Amino acid sequence: LQAFIKTLTGKTFTVEMEPSDTIENLKAKIQDKEGIPPDQQRLIFAGKQLEDGRTLSDYNIQKESTLHLVL
Protein backbone atom coordinates (compact mmCIF):
# COMPACT_ATOMS: atom_id res chain seq x y z
CA LEU A 1 0.00 0.00 0.00
CA GLN A 2 1.08 3.57 -0.54
CA ALA A 3 0.86 6.04 2.30
CA PHE A 4 1.61 9.73 2.51
CA ILE A 5 4.07 11.14 5.03
CA LYS A 6 3.59 14.82 5.81
CA THR A 7 6.22 16.82 7.68
CA LEU A 8 5.65 19.89 9.82
CA THR A 9 7.26 22.00 7.09
CA GLY A 10 4.40 20.98 4.82
CA LYS A 11 6.45 18.65 2.64
CA THR A 12 4.63 15.45 1.66
CA PHE A 13 6.18 12.31 0.21
CA THR A 14 4.97 8.76 -0.36
CA VAL A 15 6.22 5.41 0.89
CA GLU A 16 5.33 1.92 -0.28
CA MET A 17 4.68 -0.61 2.47
CA GLU A 18 2.72 -3.66 3.55
CA PRO A 19 0.04 -3.74 6.28
CA SER A 20 2.27 -6.25 8.11
CA ASP A 21 5.23 -3.83 8.15
CA THR A 22 6.22 -2.53 11.56
CA ILE A 23 6.52 1.15 12.38
CA GLU A 24 10.26 0.46 12.70
CA ASN A 25 10.33 -0.74 9.04
CA LEU A 26 8.45 2.37 8.01
CA LYS A 27 10.98 4.61 9.80
CA ALA A 28 13.79 2.80 7.96
CA LYS A 29 12.04 3.51 4.64
CA ILE A 30 11.69 7.16 5.61
CA GLN A 31 15.41 7.22 6.42
CA ASP A 32 16.22 5.73 2.98
CA LYS A 33 14.08 8.34 1.29
CA GLU A 34 14.74 11.46 3.37
CA GLY A 35 17.91 10.71 5.34
CA ILE A 36 16.27 11.25 8.73
CA PRO A 37 17.53 8.82 11.41
CA PRO A 38 14.70 6.65 12.83
CA ASP A 39 15.51 7.69 16.41
CA GLN A 40 14.64 11.28 15.46
CA GLN A 41 11.33 10.37 13.85
CA ARG A 42 7.98 10.51 15.61
CA LEU A 43 5.06 9.35 13.53
CA ILE A 44 1.53 10.46 14.35
CA PHE A 45 -1.63 8.94 12.90
CA ALA A 46 -5.19 9.72 14.02
CA GLY A 47 -3.77 11.74 16.92
CA LYS A 48 -1.69 8.84 18.26
CA GLN A 49 2.07 8.46 18.35
CA LEU A 50 3.02 5.20 16.65
CA GLU A 51 5.17 2.68 18.53
CA ASP A 52 8.07 0.94 16.75
CA GLY A 53 7.04 -2.63 17.53
CA ARG A 54 3.49 -2.31 16.21
CA THR A 55 2.37 -2.89 12.63
CA LEU A 56 0.49 -0.64 10.24
CA SER A 57 -2.54 -2.91 10.51
CA ASP A 58 -2.48 -2.55 14.33
CA TYR A 59 -3.21 1.14 13.76
CA ASN A 60 -5.63 0.47 10.89
CA ILE A 61 -3.45 2.42 8.47
CA GLN A 62 -4.92 1.94 4.99
CA LYS A 63 -3.71 2.85 1.53
CA GLU A 64 -3.41 6.57 0.99
CA SER A 65 -3.54 7.29 4.71
CA THR A 66 -1.59 10.38 5.73
CA LEU A 67 0.85 10.07 8.63
CA HIS A 68 2.46 13.08 10.24
CA LEU A 69 6.20 13.08 10.81
CA VAL A 70 7.46 15.12 13.76
CA LEU A 71 11.19 15.52 14.37
Rank of each mutant, 00 (worst) to 15 (best):
E18R: 14
I5Y: 02
I30Y: 01
E34W: 14
G10R: 03
L26C: 01
P38Q: 13
T14R: 09
S57C: 04
L43G: 00
G35N: 07
E64S: 12
E51A: 06
V15K: 00
I61G: 04
R54K: 14
T66H: 15
N25H: 12
G47S: 04
P37T: 05
H68Q: 09
L43K: 00
T12L: 11
Q40M: 10
I36W: 15
K11D: 08
L67C: 01
L67T: 02
D32S: 11
L50Y: 02
G35F: 04
H68S: 07
K6Q: 12
K33F: 09
K11H: 13
L50P: 02
V70T: 09
S20Q: 09
F13G: 00
S20H: 13
L69F: 05
L8T: 14
D52P: 07
Q40R: 12
T14F: 11
Q49H: 11
E64A: 10
P19Y: 13
T7C: 08
L8G: 11
I30S: 00
E18P: 03
L1W: 12
H68G: 03
S20Y: 12
A28N: 12
L43T: 00
D32M: 13
K48A: 10
L1R: 05
H68N: 07
L67E: 01
K48T: 13
P37K: 06
Q41Y: 13
K27I: 01
I23H: 00
G53T: 09
N25Q: 14
F45W: 10
G10H: 04
I61V: 09
I23D: 01
D21N: 05
R42G: 05
F45D: 00
M17I: 14
N60G: 14
T55I: 07
I30H: 00
F45A: 03
K48N: 10
L69M: 07
N60R: 07
I30F: 01
N25P: 00
Q49M: 13
G35P: 02
N25V: 12
Q40H: 12
I61M: 08
L69A: 01
I44S: 11
A3L: 15
I44V: 09
A28Q: 13
A46M: 14
V70F: 14
K33L: 14
Q41M: 13
G35T: 02
N25T: 14
R42P: 01
T22W: 03
E51I: 07
T22Y: 06
I30M: 01
K63T: 15
D58L: 03
Q40S: 09
K6M: 13
T9V: 07
D39Q: 10
D52S: 07
R54T: 07
E18C: 11
T14K: 10
E51D: 09
L1I: 15
P37E: 07
T22G: 03
D39G: 10
Q49S: 08
E16Q: 12
S65T: 10
V70Y: 13
E51R: 05
K48G: 07
Q2H: 12
H68E: 11
L71H: 07
G47T: 03
T22Q: 03
I30P: 01
